[in-house]
């Protein structure tokens, strides 16, 4: 049998044979155009706007006008001569460093706990419960902390119930740090957990076998091996906290200033695009410096 089937193939074969000498590899050129639409979108609607923004940061601000075509450093000079903005940057850096450190300290035990759970269902449930808050959005999560920290919130109610007097927590830098830590903690946990998952348990057993206690094993074996994750998580938390918007605005209140809300006000309310753009690039530059510096510090600490 098979005459019918191979004859239909043979007719296809004749078409195929008329092409160039390439059987498997033919017509691959068109394939390489497949990412083009996506690349075009990103280039046109993100990279080009960022380039425009960079240009704007060197432009002269004149109210009611868009790009004036001037080229000046006055926006950056304004930033470096005005103490207010330097304090805003200082607050932002301070809050970010503290938040990132807290995230790291809290994520280490939690992600280690999750990565060493023997119960697969419990483990995947915990992982999902760590990821879910992350994807609930900053608005909703910040609302949660307002409920927790408000004057009549959960924390104050517990204080009162324990016989202490209620105190103002909301609208303080502490509240912002607490809220931001909670918002960013999942990123650190997920990053660390996936790295710790890859650490062979037998390495830890070897350490225990050689006489190291559980805590020593964690400090001297697990943490050094988790270093790539620690660096990645730290960099991620730094970037996100440096650029945080919802938490400082809502939990910090109107008198608390961080960079992202300030940029927003400059660009929309003040309509001072050149200065807003300069602030954005100062923020990005400082963020990059901070992430590089923190990676170096962590790397040096781990080398000891």
């Amino acid at each position: 049998m098979g005459a019918a089937s191979s004859s239909s193939l043979a007719s296809g074969a004749a078409v195929g044979a008329s092409r160039t000498r390439s059987a498997a590899g033919r017509r691959v050129g068109a394939e390489y155009l497949m990412p083009a639409p996506g690349m075009l979108l990103v280039a046109l609607f993100l990279l080009l706007p960022l380039a425009l923004m960079l240009r704007f940061s060197f432009d002269h601000f004149s109210p009611g006008e868009l790009l004036t075509g001037a080229f000046t450093f006055e926006n950056y000079q304004k930033f470096f001569s005005d103490g207010f903005y330097q304090r805003v940057l200082g607050t932002t850096v301070f809050v970010s460093l503290v938040t990132t450190a807290l995230c790291l300290v809290m994520a280490l035990p939690l992600s280690y706990y999750i990565s060493r759970l023997d119960h697969p269902r419990l483990k995947s449930t915990l992982i999902i419960l760590v990821v879910l808050p992350l994807l609930m959005g900053n608005a909703v999560r910040t609302a949660g902390w307002m409920v927790m920290l408000g004057d009549r919130g959960v924390v104050n109610s517990i204080f009162v119930a324990l016989g202490f007097s209620a105190r103002t927590i909301l609208y303080t830098p502490t509240a912002v740090i607490i809220g931001l830590t909670s918002v960013l903690l999942p990123f650190m946990v997920i990053t660390l957990q996936s790295v710790m998952e890859g650490i062979d348990r037998r390495i830890e057993e070897a350490a225990l076998n050689l006489g190291a206690g559980p805590l020593t094993t964690f400090m001297k074996v697990v943490i050094p091996l988790a270093m790539p994750g620690i660096v990645a998580g730290t960099v991620l938390c730094l970037i996100l906290s440096m650029n945080a918007y919802a938490t400082p605005v809502l939990i910090g209140g109107p008198k608390f200033h961080m960079m992202a809300p300030t940029i927003y006000d400059q660009v929309t309310q003040g309509a001072n695009w050149p200065f807003g753009s300069a602030l954005a690039f100062v923020l990005m530059t400082v963020t990059v410096i901070l992430t590089i510096a923190s990676s170096l510090v962590i790397a040096r600490m781990s080398n000891r």
Binding site: S5, S6, L9, A10, G12, A13, G16, A17, R19, R21, S22, A23, A24, G25, R26
Partner: peptide, 27 residues
């Protein structure tokens, strides 16, 4: 099978030269 192109030589099945055929035409 036709997943790799021979840089020289020929492959025939019976009296059918398949050297230049795509994998899905080779049977």
């Amino acid at each position: 099978a036709g997943f790799v192109d021979a840089t020289a030589g020929s492959i025939t099945f019976g009296d059918r030269d398949v050297t230049l055929l795509a994998p899905y035409h080779r049977n």
